[in-house]
Design a binder for these strands. Structure first.
Length: 457
RNA sequence: GCCGCGGUGGCCUAGCCUGGUAGGGCGCCGGCCUGCUAAGCCGGUGGGGGUAUCCCCGCGCGGGUUCAAAUCCCGCCCGCGGCGCCA
């Protein structure tokens, strides 16, 4: 079987229309793709027949007498004009068809909830005992009981300081104002304890994943357009990706991009699957669509560090692996003692590459909201089709597109904001999760148990 | 950045000078043979379209010359070696 989406397009376009509809997109997109695919194939046959005639003549020239040769060459030249015209038409159709095919989003998996907005995402489980400020109790209920979950929590009378003020006012370990002046908004300087914390978090994630059989990877931080477009859709490309002036190079928005591109154009023997990679890289994001959301602090920034899980899998095992990737991320967050919920993202919020996506959202005590810390997607064969990555099954000579999956392990700055709010004491002290201890230990200057407010060192 | 050499199906390789349907080996898949295995023999083993037997495209990528390009010409990418520069 070829690319699953093309297969549906030809055999069962209604299913594809339905999937596009569930995402809140225009199903006419599918109809146009079907039409173009049909007319492209028709034109292709026409061109091939013409080329065949030309090849027959051309081949006979070598064996012809000088007399006949002149005649045949004239004939071939004449035919060439016809072919050129037909080929131009074919090329136009082909480009249009390809453009449309690449616009088609992945097919939505049947276990994905309906809906178009954040409100329609469905929590599937909760963990931890969140600290809920008295003023947030109502909204906490709205985020738990609405779906029938009874989440044990501790009501507190003092309101924790928000991560942005913690960073700059209370701890004095960040400067977004100066960063704004020299680089723009959504940039930051971090200092001392938070730098150690950032590095410790990354090591923690790498250590955890490598013990589970992930191969750790430090990938290129820039990619050619061809490679980066294989991993993401036009919308993300325009909202997120920085281009290097004067070169065919783009800054990655996540290690997912170079890890997906690692096998571009290749065939993977099935015995090698699943290939489990843990990439570590900076992430660069324009956040063009974000407007004024989360403008303060380091929750939503143009640049941060991330350890990313990425897996190449056989189609029959990819759904099981998606659950595993989420479980890995949950283990990491539980280790950090951050209360969270796992959310099944609704069809309209999926993003084109994903067939299904879970987010892990951590309770933010100062905001009174669960906020996204981790995102885990099964992209099935959407990326591998674009990047032409197949797996080969020797038994039966199967050559088919692999499935790709990705999930955050740790995104540094966001995780820091979660720690600043959840492990904050009334006096502003931040308790460092015990699991990070061993990654801080090697550095004499690094904090080990707590991060103290400015002036209380 | 400069000079030289190279890039051919999953891998290795012939063909390039001298343009005329891409050959061989290994591996793999299927079949025959066989008590079983091996050997041996036969077929298959890049993409696409149509499926009755077929056809088109494909020799790193993109152009050009030609009736015809792996082959000749130009540009680019990648790899190797050398020189230069550099943390």
């Amino acid at each position: 079987m070829p690319w699953s989406i093309l297969d549906l397009l030809r055999r069962d376009p209604e299913k594809l229309r339905d999937s596009v509809r569930r995402r809140g997109l225009d199903p006419g997109l599918v109809d146009r793709a079907v039409e173009l695919d049909v007319s492209w194939r028709k034109k292709l046959r026409e061109v091939e027949q013409l080329r065949h005639r030309h090849n027959v003549i051309s081949r006979s020239i070598g064996k012809a007498s000088p007399e006949e040769r002149r005649k045949l060459i004239a004939q071939a030249k004449e035919l060439l004009k016809v072919i050129e015209e037909a080929e131009r038409e074919l090329k136009t159709l082909e480009e249009e068809r390809e453009r449309l095919l690449l616009k088609l989003p992945n097919t939505v998996h049947e276990t994905v909830p309906d809906g178009l907005t954040e409100e329609d995402n469905v929590p599937v489980r909760f963990w931890g005992k969140p600290r809920v400020w008295r003023g947030h109790v109502e909204q906490f209920r709205a985020q738990t009981e609405k779906w029938g979950f009874k989440v044990e929590h501790e009501v507190i009378d003092w309101r924790p300081v928000g991560h942005a003020d913690m960073l700059e006012q209370v701890l004095g370990l960040g400067n977004t104002l100066k960063a704004g002046e020299v680089a723009g908004s959504r940039f930051y300087y971090l200092f001392d304890d938070l730098v150690w914390l950032d590095i410790a978090l990354l090591m923690y994630a790498l250590d955890h994943l490598s013990r589970k059989g992930f191969r750790v990877v430090l990938p290129p931080y820039m990619l050619r357009r061809k490679a980066i477009m294989g991993a993401l859709d036009m919308e993300t490309f325009e909202d997120a990706i920085y281009k290097v002036e004067g070169e065919d190079l783009y800054l990655i928005a996540t290690a997912e991009h170079p890890l997906a591109a690692l096998y571009m154009g290749e065939e993977i023997p099935e015995e090698e699957l699943p290939i489990m990679l843990a990439g570590i890289s900076p992430c660069f994001r324009k956040e063009a669509g974000a407007g004024n959301r989360d403008l303060k602090g380091i929750f939503r920034v143009h640049q941060f560090h991330k350890v990313e899980q990425f897996v190449y899998a056989k189609p029959e095992e990819s759904w099981e692996i998606l659950e595993k990737l989420v479980a890995n991320a949950e283990e990491l967050i539980r280790g950090l003692e951050l209360p969270y919920r796992v959310v099944n993202i609704c069809a309209g919020e999926l993003g084109a590459p994903a067939a299904k996506k879970y987010d892990i959202e951590v309770w933010m005590p100062a905001q009174g909201r669960y906020r996204e810390l981790v995102s885990a997607s099964n992209c099935t064969d959407w990326q591998s089709y674009r990047l032409r990555i197949r797996y080969v099954r020797r038994k039966g000579m199967v050559r088919d597109y692999v499935h790709t999956l990705n999930a955050t392990a740790i995104a540094s700055t966001r995780t820091i904001t979660a720690i600043l709010e959840n492990h904050q004491e009334p006096d502003g002290t931040v308790v460092i999760p015990k699991v990070l201890r061993k990654y801080l230990e090697p550095f004499e200057a690094a904090p080990k148990e707590v991060i103290r407010p400015a002036g209380k060192h």
